[in-house]
Design a protein around this nucleic acid. Structure first.
Length: 296
DNA sequence: GCCCAGGCACTCA
DNA sequence: TGAGTGCCTGGG
């Protein structure tokens, strides 16, 4: 069974999820796929997404989402957290006959792949290149604060800006947001989305290969960034973003620690993990990065 | 002060 | 076609 109906209850402004599997909020948020969260306590986080602020608190029996309501939960947060997908099914397939994936899955069984906004993902992963995660978070916060809408009722919380809002930006202002050499890439992305050269409403109609070549027309968007945008912001779960950590872990476990071309790794992933390559990538990435696997 | 980070573009052979 | 190198910036 690949999908299931989920059960939850609404209590005031809280949605309480009591039946769930494969969802540990810390693992899902801190596995490097998303940048707009704040850790308050253990398994207690604030996130900003889709023009909203949401607090998520988890213990052994339940997960509480606050503030929200049933209709918003259905239309925004269930898709965002991919809550209807049966991850046990995927983990079983990936772990079957693959001891590396089995260990990686056991290491972080609560990772889910978020479905993030396209434009925010595009700009965020452009910023991610040659950068560290805390700095990526800071830069996105700077840009949101400067160009995005303030979210009412919360201190210092700003939505990620729209295309129209970012049209106001120029290189010098983006440099003040600490984007560095990526400023011109961001502006090129904004321009191409604004002129519909990259048409965000037609993304779902494109074949993955077509979508990739479209994204790579943007300056500063190469193999890795386009794969991340497709996996995390376009629902293409079959792509296998191959960054330094994935390279290291693949080389270490699957290629006898010998140097391998990225294309060869991607071919291997496609053959080996198939339509679940994106999930495999997240388990492997998190496993490699937290355990520093393959780093010299 | 140097090195490096979830890459990419550019150059030169 | 592939290897080598510079790039904003700031923390270690």
């Amino acid at each position: 069974m690949r999908w299931y109906e989920i059960k939850y209850e609404q209590l005031g402004e809280k949605i309480i999820l009591t039946e769930f599997d494969s969802f540990i909020i810390s693992e899902t948020l801190e596995c490097g796929q998303c940048f707009r969260f704040l850790k308050l306590n253990h398994n207690d986080y604030m996130i900003i997404a889709h023009h909203k602020v949401l607090r998520i608190t988890q213990d052994d029996e339940k997960i509480i989402f606050y503030p929200t309501n049933e209709s918003e939960f259905e239309t925004v947060w269930i898709p965002y957290f991919d809550l209807k997908r049966n991850y046990n099914y995927i983990k079983d397939i990936l772990s079957d006959n693959d001891f590396v994936l089995r260990d990686a899955v056991l290491y972080a069984p609560g990772i889910r792949i978020l479905n993030q906004d396209f434009f925010e993902g595009l700009i965020s992963f452009i910023i991610s290149q040659n950068n560290r995660i805390p700095r990526i978070q800071q830069i996105i916060q700077n840009i949101s604060q400067r160009y995005g809408d303030k979210i009412e009722g919360f201190d210092n919380c700003y939505a990620f800006p729209s295309v129209e809002q970012l049209l106001e930006a120029d290189v010098s202002a983006l440099m003040l947001c600490k984007t560095g050499f990526r400023a011109k890439y961001i502006l090129d992305a904004v321009h191409k989305v604004n002129t519909r050269e990259i048409n965000s409403s037609e993304i779902n109609d494109l074949e993955t290969r077509e979508l990739k070549s479209t994204l790579m027309k943007i300056a500063g968007v190469g193999d890795k960034v386009s794969d991340c945008v497709m996996l995390f912001s376009c629902g293409r779960k079959e792509v296998f973003p191959t960054d330094v950590w994935v390279k290291r872990v693949m080389q270490y476990f699957y290629f006898n620690n010998q140097p391998v071309a990225i294309q060869e790794m991607q071919d291997f992933a496609k053959k080996h993990f198939g339509e679940y390559a994106g999930f495999a990538q997240q388990y492997l990435f998190h496993y490699a990065r937290t355990l520093q696997i393959g780093k010299k």
